[in-house]
Simulated assay, not measured.
Amino acid sequence: MNAFLAIAGAGLDGTTVLILTLTSFVASFITIAMGIGGGGLLLAVMASLLPPAALIPVHGVIQLGSNVTRAALLLPHVHWPPLAGFTLGSLVGVAAGGLVVVELPGAVVQIGVGLFVIWSVLRSPPKWLSTLPWLTGAISSFLTMFFGATGLFVANFTKSLTLPRQSHVATHASLMTVQHGLKVAAFALLGFSFGPWLGFIVLLTLAGFAGTLAGRVVLVRLSDKGFKRALDVILILISLRLIWTGITGD
């Protein structure tokens, strides 16, 4: 078993791959059941175990697979109108991020995104979140090139649309599929080699798919009111963690 995990893990030891595989399952379960949170959880665990240079691109491919399967499972519930504008903005954001030579300070991004999300949860979401999907796509896609897990930002846009719980999850997954797909393409063009990580990516994507199937059972049993309350709590907790990490550097 350990030999298989080591082979699939791009040189990582078997225990590390097993931990990340289980984390991928839990992350996808949380995301489809609660609407958000899994991407940030997976990124946090991966950040402590993977080489820094591989973290954002490899995380992006795994998240792409997770969001594709989630969107496919809930395809009839996708709210399509904002997708075109979001895609256009995401193209601009990813292109701009790929051209930036000096990396944005991670602490500044973490604190800024955390404060913005908390403000959006506690107050009415700003109108541009629901009326300007291209701007949400541009800003979040620019940040994802440096920060990785910008699902929080996009979740607030989706939340502002006041969709039923299954439509919220399906629409958010579709938007994140676009964003992660463009990000992965950009990293490939920038020269990152995904080949050595292929087995690891497939393993974690399959674990994420299993988590998605399990979490869907929870999603269909939640009420809309319960879902939105759980989503707000998760958004605030993750945002507080982002702010704390940005301040302390932990």
Score class of each variant (00 low, 15 high):
L73T: 10
V117I: 15
G89I: 06
V68Q: 04
A138Y: 03
T171L: 11
K225G: 11
G85M: 01
Q63F: 08
R216L: 13
L163V: 09
L83V: 15
I139Y: 05
F187D: 00
G65P: 11
L163Q: 08
T131Y: 09
V154M: 11
V17R: 05
I30T: 06
G14C: 13
A84H: 04
S28I: 02
V58F: 14
L91D: 00
V26C: 15
G215F: 11
I30N: 07
A84T: 13
V154R: 08
T158R: 00
L135V: 15
G215W: 10
G226L: 05
H59I: 06
A186G: 01
L73N: 13
L198Y: 04
L189K: 14
Q110N: 09
I243R: 05
G85D: 04
Q63P: 08
L41T: 07
L5V: 05
L122V: 15
G35D: 10
T162S: 03
G191E: 04
S66F: 03
T144G: 05
L129K: 02
G137R: 05
A8E: 13
S160Q: 01
H172K: 03
T248V: 02
H79S: 10
G148S: 03
L175W: 13
S239Y: 00
G106Q: 07
V178H: 00
S24H: 05
S141P: 07
W244H: 00
I7M: 12
I247A: 01
D250Q: 11
V58I: 15
L222V: 12
G85F: 01
L152V: 08
I118W: 09
F146T: 05
G65Y: 08
L129G: 00
T162W: 03
L99N: 12
S174H: 01
H180V: 03
T150A: 08
L64I: 12
L129C: 01
V113Y: 09
F25L: 15
G215P: 10
M176G: 02
T131A: 11
F157R: 08
P82V: 02
V68P: 00
G14K: 12
P164F: 12
V17I: 11
F200C: 03
L161Y: 15
G114V: 01
P81I: 08
M1H: 12
F25S: 07
T31M: 03
L43H: 06
I36Q: 06
V100M: 14
